[in-house]
Design a binder for these strands. Structure first.
Lengths: 333, 333
DNA sequence: AAAGAAACTGGTAACGTTTTCATAAAATAA
DNA sequence: TTATTTTATGAAAACGTTACCAGTTTCTTT
């Protein structure tokens, strides 16, 4: 494997000089620069990143923390984030934090070894060691799509409960009173969105009925379909349904179709997230739109400024959401 | 930042000894080992990866090459691959090869700098420099979901044209004679699947009609919907449709719904890939199922054996596909 | 108890860069 | 011209590891 020394020898200069042209410093005479460039081109030399990282103390790499299995919204956000990271010239490494403690610990260990420039967390981590490590070592960190009380990290999110409230209020405005809900577990957004559901009912003086709420065990379409079956099996009656995630909503629509219930004819369904799919499903899904593109690019931009300035204070940004009415909701018959 | 020297000093031993316990060598006396372990725990020390990589000449990192924007099938495969990589203890880095030459070149440059242990390519790259670099430096490489003539790299894929033939033959068996097709561009699978479509028609003595074929410019649902509109605008008549991708198929179903055409009532639709979504869409999609889980795990397993053995010959593996009949196809009326 | 083998340990040289510092060359000013 | 500043250059140290080698224990065997 060819190294900087070889280039120096080939061009008849010292390694320092080669290093200078490699790092785009302009204080090198034209003739030598050309000889060096020629040698580089001829040999196909590319500087060794490990060596660079070691001496320069930073890696130009940002880590992305994800859960083991990530849902469509996360995949979409993830691909936006990586894309922008690329634009800023960062490399990207992955860290899977499984939901169990051992998984998070392993994740943290790798994080430490890698001496990252920064971190974007797309998945709520529970372990206190995480926070300790990040704060003690002042690792620039952005929490995307959620907040963490007490963490001194920049966070980008929307007001989950307000958005859910608006989604459910829409159903109420359409005349629905029997509104079921498909919730979830583990993450803070699930309780926040459920809270929005309760508030909307409360505002309309509709009593909260626990039998109309089912919890999906996973945030995918299968989870949504299963939760819906649970609802139907328990003889819950409803003319509308709020699913805390588009994917769950789409799964529940599948489940409804299996029982020959049409959407929005028999049941109005509203989701949350506005994943790409929701505008192409049959029927198109009425939902809350998270500003996913802005979230992605702001996460990266903010992280970058955190990395470069080093003195920026952590901010918590609540981005505006929008309600998108499509074909899955209708006036109560 | 704390280093191996600090641990050595703290434990009252030499760095060599610390290095030995770090690398799980058993020839260290129990008392020293314990003192070292205690020092490590106390300080929270984790060895610096860059330094390790530099001296050990390998990085425990495998790269994944992806296109700038990847479709649902690729996302799914990608997440399976990363998951298995994790299991084998590899780190994962991303390389986006945009479709233009400059993008591929930049991708290659980074690849070289990173001294990867291996590479999984999920996106066809065109640049000859790619192949040259990989072969000359004997970088273990797996081509997932496609083959490349002449490349000495292991490849995992299915027989695209046979699968497409089977999908279209199914439509013919159902009595359809006017079968449209939504194809695509750029990648070899698109022409191979189109080839399967032609063969199926040929076998049934149905003349190939170019006006019944539209090409999507992107492999997503929007692309599918647009291609379908094109077909309808050009007054093509058909009672069945083969889309070379599930995502395109689902997009076309959306487009058909916009024209009040029902599936499978008015038009039977068959897709290709069997992405997760296809079993939950309304209607459920009849499609060709790629063994995506096996493809992902075999890619990783094969890559691993390539990395560890160093003498394995490249193999080209064609995995079996299956035809999955669901609700989007029906007998011609 | 002596000799030999085995297990353990520390010093030091790599690895491929960047950075600092001193020096040499060139450019400018007097 | 000479003195002074500026610009280029190379030598050598550092970065945090692992690997090798030699030396020192400790354990077996006679």
């Amino acid at each position: 494997m060819i190294s900087i020394k070889d280039i120096a020898k080939l061009a008849g200069v010292s390694v320092s000089t080669v290093s200078r042209v490699l790092n785009h410093q302009d204080n090198v005479k034209a003739d030598k620069r050309e000889r060096i460039l020629a040698a580089i081109k001829q040999t196909g030399y590319v500087p060794n990143r490990a060596a660079r990282d070691m001496v320069s103390k930073h890696t130009s790499t940002v880590g992305i923390v994800l859960p083991g299995m990530f849902n469509m919204f996360q995949r979409q956000l993830f691909s936006i984030v990586v894309h922008h990271l690329e634009q800023f010239g960062y490399h990207t490494s992955f860290y899977f934090a499984s939901t169990d403690e051992e998984g998070e610990l392993a994740c943290l260990r790798r994080l430490k070894a890698d001496r990252l420039d920064g971190l974007i967390i797309l998945h709520e981590v529970a372990l206190p060691e995480f926070r300790t490590y990040l704060e003690e070592n002042k690792i620039p960190t952005v929490l995307a799509t959620f907040e963490r009380d007490g963490w001194k990290a920049t966070s980008i999110h929307i007001s989950e409960d307000e958005a859910a409230l608006q989604a459910v209020s829409h159903l109420i405005k359409l005349g629905h009173r029997d509104i079921a809900c498909i919730g979830g577990t583990k993450y803070s957004f699930s309780s926040q969105r459920l809270e929005g559901y309760r508030k909307a009912l409360e505002q309309a003086s509709i009593p909260y009925d626990a039998s109309k709420v089912a919890f999906a065990d996973v945030y995918n379409m299968e989870g949504g379909a299963k939760a819906l079956n649970q609802l139907l099996d328990s003889k819950a009656t409803f003319t509308a349904l709020f699913a805390i995630t588009d994917e769950l909503a789409l799964g529940s629509i599948r489940g409804l179709a299996d029982h020959n219930l049409s959407v929005p004819g028999d049941v109005s369904v509203v989701g949350f997230d506005n994943i790409e799919l929701s505008s192409f499903s049959v029927p198109r899904l009425t939902t809350i739109s998270q500003p996913i593109v802005e979230m992605g690019q702001m996460s990266v931009a903010l992280l970058h400024s955190l990395i470069t300035s080093k003195n920026g204070l952590p901010v918590s940004i609540a981005l505006p959401f929008t309600f998108v009415q499509r074909d899955s909701t209708a006036q109560r018959r």
